[in-house]
Write a protein that binds this DNA or RNA. Structure first.
Lengths: 222, 222
DNA sequence: CCCATAATTCAACAAGCGTTGAAAAAGGAC
DNA sequence: GTCCTTTTTCAACGCTTGTTGAATTATGGG
């Protein structure tokens, strides 16, 4: 019984970015498995087939989403990894973690993609994502290598694994802590996430630093 | 063109456990999203509808799978958390981590469930799983609390978060390290996972221990 | 030997998905 | 005013999924 909607151009044309925004909203609300083209179209207030006017197919749409969201993250991390940036390794790694927070916290669906979850109609997205995220991974590893050279990190640590620990735990915190926060501690999700990140970085840094007892002045405000 | 198979009972009747084993095999090979009833039936060499003779529906089948796999894990962890077990906190936490390894390493699909991934026809499974895994979580937390009381862990640490760090990173290692192992290090997956676990526990323990420099004799064989 | 029951397959259903081709309407060009 | 292009919706297709009811056959009891 859906009353038919008039065809033809609307007063305000549909911008592809509006569709991407709708997709992100559905991602955040219903996760990756809820992000069907019909759901995205409903969120954007249009017909599913309109998506095919603006994008080649679902995969291309998701690709455009990656194109929109990943380069800023990579840019931030590259700047951080620049050897000319004089900050210490602890502060750089903390900032790298917060970078991931900034770029991933608003979309569980995005994190599910990062995790490699497969979606019908967008099967090659996990591979694409891994490829495009590699520069981000390399930037983190570069920071860690520099920390090893400068003697700020314990010798013998595998930079790849250290980077994996730092970043994947950040993603886990963003996924899990908001769910349990209110039940366990009565804290607001954002506060609980911030507290968990501080605890995690504290544990992480003591675990990898060559001199873990030296104070971390950049963390004092917390 | 599929030549019809004879109906009626076979020489060897189908055991529900055989179906569960087939489901686990599909989980390990194709992950959670590949585990359709048709795929499981194909693996077990029977018709999908036979599953409905032995289980009420897909959800009940997955439930039975949890019933089969979770209690042994919980039992192991409860024994470990028993205050009468005199081992130190470091060894207990290492053993707890290895418990999760033992019970989860063979099934990426199972880990995806633990992660809360949703599956059509088994929508309530993540909630069930979380509920049934809670005793495991509590056991780990109990170990950590004891460690805090005995002064083996740094005071002020949140036991819930510390447990989360230890266990979720183990799951991440099982998910990610095998994929990258051969490309990055040329190591066999099992060896790479073992090495990553050692590195992780080393970092973790230095991060949470009150006296991280004391040697860990139980780790010396590695 | 007959019959009830247990175990199995088959064919079909409805729902959801990504996708496509055609129809409709608005806006600008001439 | 007419026509062409752009933007939009609609209806349908083919596929996969969980699920069901009927048909079929082997087995064991009386």
């Amino acid at each position: 019984m859906p009353t038919p909607r008039p065809r033809g151009p609307k007063a305000v044309k549909m911008d592809p970015r509006t569709l991407l925004d709708a997709a992100l909203k559905v991602f955040a609300r219903d996760g990756l498995e809820g992000a069907s083209l019909r759901a995205i179209a409903r969120e954007a207030g249009c017909d599913p087939s309109l998506i095919y006017y603006h994008f080649e197919n679902k995969e291309a749409m998701f690709s455009a989403l990656l194109e929109e969201r990943i380069p800023p993250l990579v840019k931030d991390l590259r700047r951080l990894a620049d050897p000319l940036d004089p900050r210490g390794t602890a502060e750089k790694l903390w900032t790298a973690m917060r970078c991931f927070h900034r770029h991933l916290h608003d979309s569980a669906g995005f994190r599910a993609m990062v995790r490699g979850q497969i979606v019908r109609g967008a099967e090659t997205i996990p591979e694409q994502l891994a490829r495009r995220l590699r520069p981000a991974q390399f930037a983190v590893i570069a920071i860690i290598r520099r920390g090893l050279r400068r003697g700020e990190l314990r010798p013998g640590l595998n930079p790849y694994l250290v980077g994996l620990f730092l970043i994947r735990m950040e993603a886990e915190i963003l996924d899990l802590v908001p769910v349990f926060a209110e039940r366990l501690s009565g804290l607001k999700p954002t506060v609980a996430v911030a507290a968990a990140e501080c605890t995690w970085f504290d544990v992480f840094w003591r675990g990898v630093a060559a001199h873990p007892m030296e104070p971390l002045p950049f963390l004092e405000s917390l």
